[in-house]
Design a protein around this nucleic acid. Structure first.
Lengths: 274, 274
DNA sequence: GAAATTTAAATGTCAGACTTTTAATTGTCT
DNA sequence: AGACAATTAAAAGTCTGACATTTAAATTTC
């Protein structure tokens, strides 16, 4: 478990890798202060800029935090659940959006994972969490909810379901799966009819928690998965017929299709926001 | 979903955040080239060093890759499963080791997650995967396996089990959970007797896959979880009595205990490897 | 036409200066 | 003595400009 990065990379990556190993393997412990940038640049015999680039790499992974001023410096950061969540979500989202994952595979994974907390959730759900879920369910019945709002509520509902298991590690692992799914769900649940159907499943899910009915919960999740895949198949069929109808000599369109077909924007808008 | 980082942070973090948003939201697509460092420093009105620090942050998250030379530059990176795996593992491992997670919570989460792939694994397991699992099981019976080797084999076994579900998204999400557990398992499964017991559960798991016996698989995973927790409780009891016996005025020892009690090294060894 | 050379555009690295922040220290007043 | 203000020093943050290295395209040479 040494030297995560090989040589042949640039110095800042090598240095970052060494320090990272020191943290992961416990030679540097939480809240311990690293040597100052000047000292590190001496230790590693590189310039201060190179050290700084290495430290920025670590900061990007929330492995260290920095503090300015006297008695400041770089400190080993205690990775919070919040940091871990957002890293997990970013990674999962990009993994799904960049690897043109089959939507069925994604749905299958999502509901399989959610299924894993059914027994715990049924056993431990609190009244508070149930009321969160009821509130989201009620929001979802509002017909003037935008697609984005509807999906955000869907995510909140499922996160709350996961949280019912009262296991933070489980919640952490599932957060990525649930959140990363949002853009996909966004694509497939945009008709009133599909919303209504999903809402009825959500209601059943709440009931199963209330009555601690494990089989009902598992069955409902399975139905939700199946229905999601049906919707996806229907949408994809529409997309494919659209794609075969339009000219496909635009390489950008090709690379975006079919996953992001609904996100296509005017190419002139594709620039960095400064 | 804008401006992941607020102001009040340094420029390189702000710039990294803007570019990251552009990638996540699809304004920059895979393999697209970013402007050169010089151009970016003009666009954002900062120096080249600041831009470079921002780019290093993104590189640390595998969001971009850089290439030297003419027609080189920074390119939006297609996040591979491999990259996503290792990021997930690093994050999960640190989360567990830094937040003195209750070991029961961790075990519970791990086996709940593995349980989620039981139906799929039973339905789809291939002969190839079964033979991997049998091979690892056989390795585990060798009494001269070191603790590290034994745990590595344990991880390989469980990863293979997860892979039986033939769902890459599921495998990705579970990788973190299984791998991050390794140090914990390392702490608790070091006697011959506990190894033997775990081996028998592993054998049952293989049988359940061979015969596609879902209830047996679920039951076995539950027993494995229970047994892990029993072992952990026994070990922790020993650790606690040890801790109460030694002087606790060393803040470093306190911060390491009890999770890393087996990792305690001579303080003189706690330095960066240069 | 193929091989060798040149060239230009990038990133990678370095050195040094200056700015800003921050906490400890020191000094002053009541 | 204690509270408040000014000083100071250490450290990260930023900028500038230079040079090294890499790389692919363009050019030259044979």
């Amino acid at each position: 478990m040494k030297n995560t990065q090989n040589d042949a990379t640039d110095l800042s990556a090598q240095i970052a890798s060494k320090i990272r190993d020191s943290i992961v393997e416990g030679r540097l412990i939480v809240n311990e202060r690293l040597p100052s940038e000047a000292e590190l640049s001496e230790q590693f015999s590189v310039s201060r800029s190179t050290v700084r680039e290495a430290l920025k790499r670590l900061a990007a992974q929330s492995l260290i935090r920095t503090q300015r001023g006297a008695f400041g410096g770089a400190f080993v950061n205690k990775l919070s659940y919040q940091d871990a969540y957002s890293q997990n979500i970013t990674t999962s989202t990009l993994l799904l959006s960049m690897n043109d994952i089959n939507i069925d595979v994604a749905c299958e994974a999502r509901f399989a994972l959610e299924r894993s907390c059914v027994p715990l959730a049924c056993a431990r759900r609190t009244e508070e969490q149930l009321s969160v879920m009821r509130r989201e369910l009620h929001r979802q019945t509002s017909p003037d909810l935008s697609d984005e709002e509807w999906c955000a509520s869907d995510v909140a509902f499922h996160r709350s379901f996961v949280d019912c298991a009262q296991n933070p590690v489980l919640s952490y692992q599932l957060t990525g799966a649930v959140e990363a799914m949002q853009p996909l769900m966004n694509m497939i649940t945009f008709t009133a009819r599909s919303r209504a159907k999903i809402i009825s499943h959500h209601a059943a899910l709440i009931t199963s928690l209330e009555t601690q009915d494990i089989p009902l919960a598992e069955r409902t999740l399975g139905e939700l998965a199946d229905y999601s895949m049906q919707l996806a198949a229907k949408v994809l069929a529409g997309v494919n017929s659209f794609l075969s109808a339009v000219s496909m000599d635009c390489s950008w369109c090709q690379s975006m299709a079919p996953t992001f077909i609904f996100k296509v924007v005017n190419p002139s808008e594709r620039r960095l926001e400064t």
